[in-house]
């Protein structure tokens, strides 16, 4: 089985977000980068499926050279080789077009990625890629097994989950608890250094949405503290002052 796992290179969930260059660029000073947490679940499940059934895992990132440490980490976790499309991922349509171009060449049985990136939170790349390739796509997938040429999986729906079966190839947007995150071991880290990482240039895509500027939310006012022995006054404040009851 050939699996393609698409990963994003994103600021750590605890990163403080600020902007530079007239609010047109993320201020990267002091920001730690990670593999997108949802992508990390997708990668972990791919490694487990490969352990069960054999096959290969290619990891794909659309990003600039600063993604390389995260790509090496994915190789250390268990991917066999990697492709980086050398471009800043500016828009979902752009990113999906790049992924679809790579996927078309590779003939993958399964294309896994996170349900959304944690920088732009769009949650649409898997759907775009599926349609561009003319194959089904599902998200958010929280359980996945492969039996022959059929995927058996569960998708989170409002208030519960839905169980599905569909023939491969498929594109799936993943989330917990599809697998436990994997931490690379020393052997993995050593072998990752020599695994192939191919850098390719992006295919051209017309402008679909271009950044005007970034803004930060207005600062939150001070929290109004209510003494515990007067907790009941909270309800009247929510009614008369906050007007939310």
């Amino acid at each position: 089985m050939k699996i393609l796992v698409c990963i994003t290179n994103v600021p750590d969930t605890t990163a403080k977000i600020s902007f530079t260059d007239n609010n047109t660029k993320l201020n990267k000073a002091g920001v730690q980068y990670i593999i997108g947490p949802y992508d990390d679940y997708a990668l972990a499940r791919a490694v487990e499926l490969k352990e069960q059934q054999g096959g290969s895992i290619t990891v794909l990132n659309v990003g600039e050279a600063e993604s390389d440490p995260q790509i090496r980490k994915a190789l250390a976790i268990g991917a066999d080789d990697a492709v980086r499309v050398n471009a800043e991922p500016t828009d979902s349509y752009f990113t999906a077009t790049q992924i679809a171009a790579i996927a078309k060449e590779g003939g993958y049985d399964l294309i896994l990625m996170g349900r959304e990136s944690i920088d732009f939170n769009s949650g649409v790349v898997h759907g775009l890629v599926g349609e561009m390739l003319g194959i089904p796509s599902f998200s958010p997938v929280m359980k996945l097994d492969i039996e022959g040429a059929t995927a058996k999986f569960a998708r989170e729906i409002e208030g519960g989950k839905e169980f599905l079966e569909a023939p491969l190839p498929l594109v799936l947007g993943c989330q917990e608890p599809i697998a436990e995150w994997k931490i690379p071991n020393m052997r993995g880290i050593m072998t990752a250094r020599t695994k192939p990482l191919k850098v390719v240039e992006p295919v051209a895509v017309g402008d679909m949405a271009t950044l005007d500027q970034y803004t930060l939310p207005a600062p939150k006012g001070a929290c109004k503290m209510i003494p515990a022995d007067q907790a009941e006054t909270l309800i009247s404040l929510l009614k008369t002052e906050a007007k939310v009851l």
């Binding site: 600021p11 969930t13 977000i17 271009t210 005007d212 970034y214 930060l216």
Partner: peptide, 12 residues
Amino acid sequence: YTGKAFATVDVK
């Protein structure tokens, strides 16, 4: 950034 910021984009 999961609600930590906003982006204004020109949709083309």
